[in-house]
Structures are given as C-alpha cells and as structure tokens.
Simulated assay, not measured.
Amino acid sequence: MEIDELSGIVVDECIALHRELGPGLFENVYEAVLAGRLEKRGLSVLRQFPVPVEIDGQIFDPAFSVDILVEGRLVLEIKAVERLSQTHIRQLLTYLHLLKQPVGLLLNFSHGTMKDGIRRVSNDHNSS
C-alpha cells in the first residue's frame, strides 16, 4: 500500500473518531481508539513503539516511543493541545529522521474540527 493511501485511511479514521468523541479527551484515549480502528481495517499497528538511538557507538534503548507506527512506516504523533507548535513538528521530524521514514502525521484532536488538527510532515533529511 502506498504511503498516500495509508495516510488517507488514517485521516478518514481520525475525522470519524473526532466526530464521535469530539475534542477534550486525553491523548491516550484517542491513541487507543485510533489504533483499534486501524487494526480493524486490517492494518499493522504498533502503539508506544520503542525506538533506540545510537550515538557515538552507544545505544540508548529506548530513547523515545512513537505513539503509533502503522504498517512499519507511517509515524503518527497524537496530541490533544490547544495549538500545535514548532516544537511538535520538530519532534516528529526527529522521529522520522531517526526511524528513516519519509512521512508522519501530527494529529491534534483538540480542534473544533479534525481537519484543522492534521499536519502532514515530510522528512527532508537524507536517510543515508
């Protein structure tokens, strides 16, 4: 499945989930329900996926956890904040860089409509 098709499925599920639950819940609620819906659609989903970081030959395991990893390649970062900041975008970019993945979705469920809470982030780092 192409990354754009995979992203489309995630966005559709996020919009449907937001319509049902609305804003105002904690991030872990949206994360759990979204993961369940994606699994129900037959996708491989890993929640709180631990990621090691290697620096100067030393491995730090786990250095951080990705909220949701879909099909081993689409990184989802779930937020429930009033407003996304550049820090949230940089965080996702760093995750993409360290995982050597091209695309991630920053999903903020606190907006009035989910459409306003979706940011597609592309990894411009060289993966070599």
Score class of each variant (00 low, 15 high):
E2V: 09
D4G: 10
D4V: 10
E5I: 11
G8R: 14
G8N: 14
I9P: 01
D12E: 14
C14G: 05
I15K: 03
A16R: 14
L17I: 09
L17G: 05
L17N: 08
H18P: 00
E20I: 10
E20Q: 12
E20W: 10
L21A: 11
G24W: 07
L25G: 08
L25D: 12
F26M: 15
E27C: 03
N28C: 13
E31I: 03
A32Q: 14
V33Q: 01
L34E: 08
L34P: 00
L34I: 06
G36W: 01
G36T: 02
L38H: 06
L43K: 13
L43E: 08
S44Y: 09
S44H: 15
S44A: 13
R47S: 12
F49T: 01
P50A: 10
P52S: 05
V53Y: 03
I55Q: 06
D56M: 06
G57Y: 14
G57S: 08
Q58S: 10
I59N: 01
I59G: 00
D61P: 08
D61L: 13
F64P: 06
D67A: 10
D67G: 08
L69W: 14
L69D: 03
V70Y: 11
V70L: 11
V70N: 13
L74E: 06
V75C: 08
V75H: 03
L76T: 12
L76S: 13
E77A: 12
K79E: 11
A80Y: 07
V81C: 14
V81N: 12
V81G: 12
E82A: 14
E82V: 10
E82S: 15
R83T: 10
L84N: 07
L84R: 06
L84V: 08
S85A: 03
S85R: 05
S85V: 02
T87V: 11
H88C: 04
I89K: 15
I89C: 07
R90T: 01
R90D: 03
Q91G: 08
L92D: 12
L93R: 08
L93T: 00
T94Y: 07
T94G: 15
Y95E: 07
L96D: 09
L96V: 09
H97A: 14
H97K: 15
L99T: 13
L99R: 11
K100T: 00
Q101V: 05
G104I: 03
G104M: 01
L105A: 05
N108R: 11
F109D: 03
F109W: 01
S110N: 15
T113E: 15
T113W: 09
M114G: 00
M114Q: 03
M114D: 00
K115L: 09
D116Y: 05
D116H: 05
I118D: 00
I118S: 00
R120D: 02
S122M: 10
N123S: 07
H125L: 04
N126P: 00
N126H: 02
N126W: 00
S127P: 07
S127Y: 00
